[in-house]
Design a protein around this nucleic acid. Sequence first.
DNA 1: AGCATGACTGCTT
DNA 2: TAAGCAGCCATGC
Length: 103
Amino acid sequence: MAAITEEQVELVRALIAAIPPGRVRTYGDIADEAGLPSPRLTSWVLRTDGGDLPWHRVITASGRPAAPVRRRQLELLAAEGVPIVDDRVVLRRCRIGVDGDGP
DNA sequence: AGCATGACTGCTT
DNA sequence: TAAGCAGCCATGC
């Protein structure tokens, strides 16, 4: 029996599904919102149940997509209008839940 | 029971 | 900016 409940997993999926086009969120943000004890659990949910979810809208805090799918994600994100520079997503412009205070 | 793995993050060099 | 290191939690062997 996993330490996390089905409710938590469901919440994670809901949060990911709620991400609007042209916007992205990090694993850590989703984990925090869903109440997961660690951002690694977000990857776990995505990897196991992410079949019907817009997984491409979930990226690492580095602004770089996950390794096994990074090529795919960059293409999908770019198609949605997400600003990408040098194979990297511009989080300060498309990240949700955080307001870029500006440089 | 113990060790290795992974779609991670933050801090330090 | 990039690279290295430790912490993190569930899963698989």
